[in-house]
Simulated scan of single mutants.
Amino acid sequence: MLELQCAVRRDMLGLADGDSSAYVVPDSLPPRARLGIYRNTATGALLTALRLSYPAIRSLVGPEFFVGAARRFIEHCPPPSAWLDAYGATFPDFLARMPESASLAYLPDAARFEWAVNVVLHAPDAKPLDLGRLAELEPAELGHIRFAPHPAVQLIQSAFPVDAIWRAVLTRDDSALAAINLAEGPVWLCVRRTTSAVAIDRLAEGQWHFTAALLAGCPLHAALDQATDAAAHVWLATLLASGYFTEANLEGQVSNLPSGDPAT
């Protein structure tokens, strides 16, 4: 059975040509033609997954270009699992390597931003950190906290205003799209899911780097030492109040301040 499944998978993903034909009983259609029906169905499902994850990119490049790029991506980067919501994470890097998209310098970053939105949309629910637990710590311990990031928070940095491009394309606002200046400078973005929508915030560069350090598990004292923003303490309060974190552990401890019921 395993041999059969592996052979069918190779044929469905175009990794082989006819490996599984020997397992197919000929009937009204030759084995390769019969397998071709399933291969087309599998490819169609992957194309749909990419189209749903990258609607703005599809609108930017047009349906024909998008389908052509997606088919090449599917051929070179088959899915590692059956979870289609997770398929396409490396599509932005694939676009960056395509000679045909070289004239659209902003396209890979726009795709990375759109994938961040997709990740946030499909991230699991998680309780934000119970801030009352921080009050239980001694002042000397606070600097040694490591925060665990909320799964529905993503940071993106780009040399192009990819958030403005994304909004203008999806709202079909041609005047807003025409007004975008690609040379206006870098943007430092946070994409996060709130109780009612996906929020997209532009951060100051210092805020972004400080947030990125904390989300990566940097101890609070180290993140504050590296912060270039004099108001980093104020920004930390905003992060905590906005639910950017789910846990807070002291350095060297696996678990110390989990969110949820204080009695657990």
Score class of each variant (00 low, 15 high):
Glu141Gln: 15
Tyr244Asp: 03
Leu240Trp: 04
Glu100Ala: 14
Val8Asp: 00
Pro63Gln: 08
Glu64Pro: 00
Ile145Lys: 01
Gly18Met: 07
Val119Gln: 15
His76Arg: 15
Pro55Val: 09
Tyr106Gly: 01
Val187Gln: 15
Gln157Lys: 10
Pro219His: 07
Ser53Gln: 09
Ala179Cys: 08
Thr43Gly: 04
Cys77Lys: 02
Asp85Val: 10
Asn249Leu: 07
Gln154Tyr: 01
Tyr38Asn: 05
Ser196Cys: 04
His150Phe: 03
Cys6Thr: 15
Ser53Glu: 02
Ala111Pro: 03
Met1Val: 12
Ala140Val: 12
Gln226Ala: 15
Thr41Asn: 15
Ser255Lys: 11
Glu184Met: 12
Ala111Arg: 05
His221Gln: 13
Gly62Met: 05
Asp130Ile: 01
Asn181Phe: 02
Ile200Asp: 01
Tyr87Gly: 07
Glu138Lys: 11
Thr195Arg: 13
Asn40Cys: 06
Trp166Lys: 03
Val119Thr: 14
Trp83Glu: 14
Asp173Trp: 04
Ala16Thr: 10
Glu3Gln: 14
Ala197Asn: 13
Pro63Asn: 10
Glu205Gly: 02
Leu189Gln: 10
Met12Cys: 05
Pro139His: 07
Gly44Ile: 09
Pro258Tyr: 04
Leu84Gly: 00
Ala176Thr: 04
His122Arg: 13
Ser101Pro: 00
Ala123Thr: 06
Ser59Trp: 02
Gly206Trp: 11
Pro108Phe: 05
Ala33Tyr: 02
Pro92Glu: 04
Arg32Gln: 12
Val234Gln: 04
Pro55Met: 08
Asn118Glu: 12
Glu114Val: 08
Ser53Asn: 11
Glu184Arg: 13
Ala111Lys: 06
Ala230Val: 11
Ala123Phe: 08
Ser59Thr: 10
Phe73Asp: 08
Pro55His: 09
Ala164Ile: 00
Asp93Ala: 15
Ile180Pro: 04
Asn256His: 15
Ile156Asp: 01
Ala230Lys: 11
Thr90Phe: 01
Lys127Thr: 13
Tyr54Gly: 08
